[in-house]
Design a protein around this nucleic acid. Structure first.
Lengths: 289, 289
DNA sequence: CGTCCGTTTGAGGTTTCTCAACGAGGGTGG
DNA sequence: CCACCCTCGTTGAGAAACCTCAAACGGACG
């Protein structure tokens, strides 16, 4: 058994101005809270939500937004659940910690992502969610999700889509940890984050702002910090990417794709398929009968 | 980059009589198809479904069951999706394969589990589902899930619970691949399977029937077959478990728990929490208004 | 009786880890 | 303003875990 390389998440470090802006689609969102808009931006990738769905969404997220500093927990493994959130600005990580301190990051959460969306289902949190940068979030009651599902079938379908998308990302993550080399894991992670951010307008060109320390990358990829460092430097030496303070430039995307066999289909950037849309439309017009 | 150790899944091998029986709870299930009963058995862990939910479930699964031989795909990565299924008897594995042949198993599917439950969302399958033993399954149309969600809020909540539970299992799997040693991974896998089967009445005592070859275990745990073999033999030598043909006996459960820090809470064997149940009941009685 | 699939074992190699130390930057307090 | 932390990144050296290759074994089945 190896000793834990994992280290506490950073705490009480002042803010940096990474990604404080949520990119909003040009819809009539004036009447909505920031939380509703952020979630809408994401769900909109899947389907244009109808007025009923948008009202329901607005009703769900009508509480004032809250702020967290880098290193604080929005949710703590083993503790009773409190609120659920939609992230407005900043990054967070969902992680699990073993009794001896080893830590594994399960997923990265970016603006528009939900924290504990289905959290009402277990009273005690099985993972922690920690702010990786200073962040703001829109809180909502965990049980409200049930009401939401019942009130708008379209919204329910969109939420299921969001859950399925998350599962796809976790699946690809599982492949990385189980079958990819350190080099492939690192390259794959950056390609994924780049693709995720780009589709929401949070990254442009080949540049990408990420508030990730090498320790955090290590905990996400199941590697030691030392080896992440060496891998990063090797990829940089080959001219594939350039790492600065808290940003990364993907210099040779074609070759990065080749290194990892990256195929962004699993991220599901696409709209609802035809048959599903038809089924939903029928329901919305004629009722569930 | 390591060469692929992964090997094709076994094919066309005759059936073995492992787990051909689904344990049914003692409810009035006479009017339901086998598929509906199997899924009900699982969803029942979460909440006693009301008549409306049970009617909807029966309507979803009214097609005749189908059979697959060991090694056949119920769903193939990269191919267009066909039906979704509820597994009735036998085991399956969901896996992803890299271009060079390396394979990672994402999850094991046992009776009552759904294949491609949310599959309508992507037209092309991002993973394969392969029969690990001969199996039978109840098919349903992928888009039917939308109707189901709209017709019964209780069923919708139960399905969300099932999805959340799956995500928890994947999360723990991620911890294994990222931060646990081979020894811990193997012990953890068996404890998980044992707990999952026991709660549905598919395993008794410390014995557990699993149609897993060492190659399959390796592909699930991100290890080589050779190392799985050595790890298995080491655990056996220490008297922690005994592996026979296709069954495993957990000889020292206390120490196995200690080896892995296993805590079965993440499997969510429990019923719906109080507040969620109350919320749902209100909806069912008063409507979503 | 031969073949096939899965398991087992040996030997040597590679990746990744641990331990340890140093450097660079930024914030903080004297 | 400078000295001192503290965090994070970087580098070296040796060790451990795990992998590959190769070969042999055993049971099941034709």
């Amino acid at each position: 058994m190896r000793a834990p390389q994992s280290v506490r998440f950073p705490e009480r470090v002042p803010a940096r101005d990474v990604h404080r802006e949520v990119c909003l689609h040009t819809m009539a969102t004036n009447d909505m809270s920031p939380g509703a808009r952020a979630l809408l931006t994401k769900l909109d990738l899947f389907a244009k939500l109808d007025p009923q769905a948008r009202r329901t969404l607005a009703g769900l997220l009508d509480r004032p937004q809250v702020s967290y500093e880098r290193g604080q927990d929005l949710m703590t493994q083993g503790a009773l659940r409190r609120d659920s959130y939609v992230i407005l600005t900043g990054w967070a990580a969902r992680s699990k910690t073993l009794p001896d301190g080893r830590r594994q990051i399960l997923s990265f959460l970016t603006p528009g992502d939900a924290v504990g969306l289905f959290g009402a289902i277990t009273p005690v949190a099985t993972s922690s969610v920690t702010a990786l940068s200073d962040l703001t979030a829109a809180p909502f009651a965990p049980t409200a999700i049930v009401r939401t599902i019942a009130r708008s079938p379209q919204l329910a379908a969109a939420l299921v889509w969001a859950a399925a998308r998350e599962q796809e990302i976790m699946g690809e993550h599982l492949v990385s940890l189980g079958r990819r080399s350190a080099r492939e894991r690192v390259a794959h992670l950056f390609l994924e984050l780049w693709a995720r951010l780009k589709v929401r307008g949070l990254a442009g060109g080949d540049q990408l702002q990420v508030p990730l320390t090498q320790q955090i990358i290590a905990d996400a990829l199941g590697l030691s910090v030392v080896h992440v460092n060496r891998t990063l430097r090797q990829l940089a030496a080959e001219g594939l990417l350039a790492v600065k303070r808290e940003s990364v430039a993907l210099l040779d995307i074609r070759q990065l794709h080749q290194v990892t066999g990256f195929d962004e289909d699993y991220l599901m950037h696409h709209a609802m398929p035809q048959d599903l849309a038809a089924e939903l439309a029928r329901l919305v017009t004629h009722g569930p009968g």
